[in-house]
Structures are given as C-alpha cells and as structure tokens.
C-alpha cells in the first residue's frame, strides 16, 4: 500500500492505527465526545481476525495533533466529517464499515451523506441528531443543561496542579493531587474540550439523516440518558431502510459496558 504525503499527514493528524486482517473488509471505529480511540479497546480486537480494523483520534483527543485544531473548521461536525473522508481516502478504503459512537455517529452521517463512495455500511452507536429539546422533539436536554456541562468541564479540566491547587489544597508538595482525570486514558486537550462540547451538544443534524443512502444500523442502549430510546427511534425512522437494535447494555457506552453484545450486534448486521 502506498500513501501520499498528504495522506501521511492525515494519518498523523488523526493518530490513525490500522490492525487486523489486511485482506478483510475495512471497519473504522470512531470514538465519541470526551474520549479517544481507547474507547474501542474492548471491541476492536474482536474484529481483527476477519476485518481490517482502523482506529483514530479526533483532532484534540488522544494522540491526535492538537495544533491542527482550527476552530473555524471544527465549529461544526462537518469539519470532523471531512477528516473521516480524508482518512478513508488516505487508506484507499472501499466498502468501509463506519462504526461511530455518540457524536461520531452524526459525523458518520454527515460524511456518508456528503460522499458515500467509500462507505459500505454505517453503524450508529447511541446516536443523537439533536441533544436539546425542540418543538415536537425531545432530545433530553435544555440549553442550561449544556451550559452546566461546560461548567463541569471547566471545573474538571481546571489546571489546579500548576497554579491554584497548592494554594487551595494546602498541599504544595503533592501537585499530582490536581491532575485529576486527564492522566493516561482518554486524553482530551482542555483548551479544545469546551469548544468541542459546544459543537457536539448544540448541533442539530436532523435534516441530514434523510440523506444517508448506505445500509445503516442504529444501536440503542438501555437507560441511556444522553441518547434516550425515543431519540434512537427517531434516527432509525429518519434514515431510509435503516435497521434498529436494542441492547441490554446500559448507559451511553456499550463499547465498555457490553462489548460482547455490541460486537455481536454489529457482526450479525454485517453478516
């Protein structure tokens, strides 16, 4: 496989990793808001025997190149969708299965809607086209809820360790006390997290669903407050010919809470 310089730049920018069966059908796993490709640690290995497995980090997350974060580009999910299309092209993938979790489900919808040529199937795990309630639509959240999330982000990413933590905690000898969450897993650039949260939770992609023309599976979790079942149903009904599967796995992250069940659901859809 030869990769152009531009292609190599794309792969570096998004920290793309390729594993599994080089002859297999490509499956691309895209992580959701607040995490990185590690989100697929329990699922991706199960596809490696039969599939060519592609993982990547969104710009601003994990091992991606944060300097590539152009706020104007990433002020809408289209910026992320363009990146997905570039990754597919850089790897010359055909008939690719795109598995998008959370916000990346909508990124997949936008990418496949814009240029379906390299897509063979979409798997949308916990998708929501709009998080905020609207007339005749229940997304589950209000604008103030999203502002509260931004507050929570700011509080959790506040860089106590370098400036305020010793002062407040009276523990100048133990700066690691302030390091909080951002250690080794799911690294997210705090400068980017707030903007990314705004773009994720304030987007409205309901109109884009009808444009999807590739075979699509909507994967719905149980008791998912971020993407409630009526939202999953809405997505299923809006995407022509899509399939819908309800998992027993609870919460918003079945890739962690029910990796076996999720793997089975994806595999049986592709079979």
């Amino acid at each position: 496989m030869t990769i152009s310089t531009a292609g190599a730049d794309v792969l570096r920018r998004n920290n793309v990793t390729v594993s599994g069966n080089p002859e297999g059908r490509p499956v691309v796993f895209a992580h959701g808001f607040g995490c990185s490709q590690e989100m697929w640690n329990l699922v991706a290995p199960r596809f490696e025997r039969d599939y060519r497995v592609v993982l990547f980090d969104s710009v601003g997350a994990g091992g991606s190149d944060s300097t590539a974060y152009d706020r104007a580009k990433y002020d809408s999910l289209h910026g992320y969708a363009d990146d997905v299309l570039e990754i597919l092209e850089a790897l010359s993938l055909e008939d690719a299965v795109f598995v998008g979790h959370s916000v990346s489900a909508m990124v997949g919808v936008l990418a496949a809607g814009h240029d379906p040529s390299r897509f063979g199937a979409l798997v949308l795990v916990g998708p929501s086209p709009r998080y905020i309630d609207d007339a005749g639509y229940r997304g589950g959240f209000s604008q103030p809820d999203i502002e509260a999330l931004l507050d929570a982000l700011d509080q959790n990413y506040f860089d106590w360790s370098t400036s305020m933590a010793p002062l407040i905690m009276g523990n100048p000898d133990r700066p690691e006390l302030g390091a909080a969450l951002t250690e080794s897993f799911c690294e997210v650039d705090p400068a980017i997290a707030g903007h990314h949260a705004r773009v994720t939770f304030l987007s409205d992609n309901r109109r884009d669903l009808a444009r999807v023309s590739v075979p699509t599976l909507v994967v719905q979790c149980s008791d998912d407050v971020i993407a409630p079942v009526e939202v999953g149903r809405y997505v299923h009904e809006a995407i022509p010919g899509s399939s819908f599967v309800q998992l027993a796995a609870t919460g918003h992250c079945p890739n962690l809470s029910g990796p076996d069940e999720l793997t089975d659901a994806i595999e049986s859809f592709l079979r």
Binding site: D145, L149, A152, F201, V225, I226, H252
Partner: peptide, 8 residues
C-alpha cells in the same frame, strides 16, 4: 450537566 460528564 453532571450526568453528561459522568456518561462521557
């Protein structure tokens, strides 16, 4: 807001 952070 906390639920969003908890889940994500």
């Amino acid at each position: 807001g906390g639920q969003l952070f908890y889940e994500t």
